[in-house]
Amino acid sequence: MIRDITIGQYYSGSSVIHRMDARMKIVLTLAYIVSIFICRNFISLGVMALFVAVTALFSRVPVKMLLKSLKPVLIIVLFTAVLNIFYTTGGSTLVEWRFIKITSKGVFSAIFMSIRIIALIVCSSLLTYTTTPTVLTGAIESLLSPLKIFHIKVNTFAMMLTLALRFVPTLIEEIDRIMNAQKARGADLESGGLISRAKALVPILIPLFISSFRRAYDLAFAMECRCYTGGDNRTSMKKMKLAGRDFGALIFYLIMLAGIIVVNRLFPAVI
């Protein structure tokens, strides 16, 4: 079961979204997250939600997978909705019973907030569904490269990210092995209260840390043998290149953003 894990949650495909430059995808995702907080009424929010739905359609990522990425945040969505229903007041009163008072504005803002969070999560999962972790790291490196003028070692940072990703499955396998070894010696990992279970983790974490240090040491040797110096004169096999579709996406997005600002002005705000 552990052997099957994929790093990140990449869904392989060759859709137009998959082929977009990862840097543009990151920039647009960030822009989307910012602009979804600009929305003030249901029309602008609807346009934003439609945008992410159309993007999802283009990416050919199955709806089931997108729903899966929503599962962990479901509680947050519900929590926010409930809070908004009870604590936002205004408009006409719908229900009033003892200290509970539900107003139309409360219901609207609950729906509004839920759509906002869901769109946000779907958009950012689309980024990770359509981009491999390696490409993502490369894109982050490229986007951060202006920081070089402040003498920040961007490529060293990117290398650290890559290595961290690379060792996730290795360390999971290792934990599995250590847990089995400790269980075979009679370690009890599953029963007892929170504290005794936390204590039971110590004999797993200590060997894990020791072996990680050993791995790090070996890896450093291996990297040095392959002439890694951490210097700036490294080249890269895969060059990222902005294509027509990336500029197309950007222009489309900017037009939509302008539309949203106009809609915000013209129509009354819900929240």
């Binding site: 390696t134 890559t162 690379r166 890896l219 392959r226 080249t235 890269s236 096999m237």
Partner: peptide
């Protein structure tokens, strides 16, 4: 060092 086989092979020449 890398999460994909061909990227790992490219590591040395990239350096």
């Amino acid at each position: 060092v890398s999460t994909i086989v061909e990227d790992d092979v490219a590591f040395g020449p990239e350096n």
